[in-house]
């Protein structure tokens, strides 16, 4: 089966694209799929750090594109999971080193060998963004429940539609049930209402994510973590399974409401 290419993007920086990419890749690989992550953030790479593969980089994406190595040589295999690979970005070049057609070519070469290709997009709407959405079959837009992040997500969704790559799906990251309950944070419902696209996951705000990111151990590897579970649920939804939305707050039921909201809109 030919692989599907999933691009994780957001517009705004710092909302959790790289963390989401790493965890989705881990979750898909745990389910037995062969997964390649591609770091599309050339010049500011960090997917390798989050995956804990930093010290094993020999060749990178630009080397592949400029034919200095074969694609196989640039694929770093994860030691924890058999079928997880990373193609890192170059640190010393910039986004103009590759073009959208280069990305399409690289992905086409990988399509027959793997099940999923996860591409981590850089922040912004320029060349780097265009590179990463060019090969995508599915685009996931990550946002935080913050007005500025939602604004940028809206812009990105518009650009994705304009490139005829839509409809994108939405991940809301760093939801704090306490704050939303007090009305001090946008609720997932507010975000979904404004952006009007299908919600594919809600990730709670969790300090363990910072810890696991710093250690290079994606939280999806931790079987006990609720946040890790949230990423695994997204991975299941990418596979086409229907998984109910997790309750973030023991008492509240707002996530169930969100699910209801998008089902209404999605029909």
């Amino acid at each position: 089966m030919a692989a599907s290419v999933v691009t994780i993007t957001s517009g705004k920086g710092g909302v959790g694209k790289t963390t989401t990419s790493a965890n989705l890749a881990v979750a898909l690989a745990e389910d037995g799929f062969k997964v390649v992550c591609i770091d599309g953030d050339i010049g500011l790479r960090n997917l390798d750090v989050v995956l804990g593969l930093e010290n094993r980089i020999v060749y990178d994406l630009v080397d592949v594109v400029e034919n200095r190595c074969r694609i196989r040589q640039a694929m770093i295999r994860d030691k924890r999971l058999e079928e997880l690979y990373l193609i890192p970005a170059a640190q010393t070049r910039d986004k103009s080193a590759i073009s959208p057609s280069d990305m399409v070519r690289v992905c086409d070469e990988l399509r027959n060998e793997v099940d999923y290709i996860i591409i981590d997009s850089p922040a912004g709407i320029e060349r780097g963004f265009r590179n990463t959405i060019a090969p995508a079959d599915l685009i996931l837009v990550v946002t935080n429940p913050e007005v500025s992040a939602v604004r940028d997500a809206d812009r990105i969704i518009g650009l994705v539609e304009a490139e005829e790559k839509g409809p994108a799906k939405l991940i809301i990251n760093r939801v704090n049930p306490g704050l939303t309950k007090r009305g001090d944070m946008l609720t997932p419902e507010d975000v979904v209402e404004l952006l009007a696209i299908e919600l594919i996951g809600v990730i709670p705000d969790d300090e363990n994510v910072v810890i696991s990111t710093n250690r290079g151990q994606p939280i999806a590897l931790d079987p006990k973590s609720k946040t890790g579970q949230a990423f695994k649920n997204i991975s299941k939804r990418i596979q086409g399974q229907s998984v109910p939305f997790m309750q973030l707050d023991e008492k509240g039921d707002f996530l169930a409401k969100v699910a209801g909201l998008f089902r209404q809109g999605g029909d």
Binding site: R151, D152, D154, R155, I157, G158, L159, E161, A196
Partner: peptide, 13 residues
């Protein structure tokens, strides 16, 4: 004459 736009205008449009 009027311009009719039959969709939601997102940020940046």
């Amino acid at each position: 004459k009027a311009v009719l736009v039959n969709k939601t205008l997102r940020a940046g449009y």
